[in-house]
């Protein structure tokens, strides 16, 4: 697949620093105070991506399903950790269900794509499994954070409505049904919207990579279509499972609301 790839020589890679120097120049000229962030960001970009390239190269060489799964779980834990950090709520503990269900749900989606649709042989072939798994995790991490943030803020803002319905004989699920729906919707909408815009505004990432790698664009779009549909499914399943699981934790014994 990489027959058409033009290799970037190390000194040419350093040439790309011209762009960050340009950004640094803007920061200096306009006194934006972004110089430090640009410097750290540049160093991190180099360090993190070189590390990732090295790790991926190692995993590809070892070619073991256990190593692939272990790396996927580490990526899932990092995604869950990032999503958790974005949700500010201390009255409900949701870390473990979040780690567990994100790993399970996104593993299922990734296996379905690599094994069932792309038909990689074997299904865990790291060249397919890890990039696809990474895309699923990266996108779904945002949707899960949005959904949970919405769930918690709605349950707090509309606590009197939840309580009113409980007092009329609703159980916790019935009393919070509106807030649950709104949360899952909020988590799903960005990936649905991106289906509307794809191909109109920019060439999406995976397709760009394949085209740069020398693939036939008509072949590249097939991958991109799979990716778009996969992300809609992943954000839907992830938001739904996480919201339902964590919604239960917003109520104590006797369906007593904990957020108010």
């Amino acid at each position: 697949m990489d027959a058409g790839v033009i290799s970037i020589a190390p000194w040419r890679l350093l040439l790309a620093l011209v762009f960050t120097l340009l950004a640094g120049g803007c920061s200096l000229a306009l006194k934006l105070g972004l110089g430090r962030d640009i410097l750290i960001g540049t160093v991190r970009t180099f360090a993190q991506l070189f590390l990732m390239g090295w790790v991926l190269g190692f995993v590809f060489a070892v070619d073991s399903p256990w190593l692939v799964l272990a790396l996927f779980l580490v990526m899932a834990a990092a995604a869950a950790h990032t999503a958790r950090g974005r949700v500010k709520e201390s009255a409900v503990s949701f870390a473990w269900p979040m780690y567990g269900s994100m790993a399970a749900v996104y593993l299922l989606i990734t296996v379905t794509v690599t094994g069932g649709i792309v038909h990689a042989e074997p299904w865990w072939k790291p060249q397919y499994f890890l990039p696809i798994g990474g895309m699923v995790l990266g996108n779904s991490m945002n949707s899960v954070a949005v959904a949970l943030d919405r769930l918690f803020s709605d349950l707090r803002a509309r606590a009197s409505v939840v309580e009113m319905q409980l007092c009329l004989g609703a159980d916790a699920a019935e009393a919070s049904a509106d807030m649950t729906r709104a949360a899952v919707r909020a988590g799903m909408i960005p990936s649905i919207n991106s289906m509307m815009a794809v191909g109109l505004v920019s060439i999406p990432g995976m397709m760009t990579g394949q085209i740069l790698g020398g693939s036939d664009p008509t072949q590249a779009i097939r991958y991109q279509i799979v990716v778009m549909l996969m992300l809609v499914g992943a954000t839907a399943l992830g938001s739904t499972v996480l919201t339902l699981l964590i919604r239960r934790r917003c109520f104590g014994p006797g369906d007593r609301p904990l957020l108010r």
Binding site: S160, V161, L166, G169
Partner: peptide, 22 residues
């Protein structure tokens, strides 16, 4: 605490201080 919560709340009906409508 031994009664089903939904049933309990229909037997013992609590009216909130601020009337809440849906």
């Amino acid at each position: 605490s031994t009664l089903p919560p939904a049933g309990l709340r229909r037997r013992v009906s609590y009216l909130q201080q601020t009337p809440t409508v849906s």
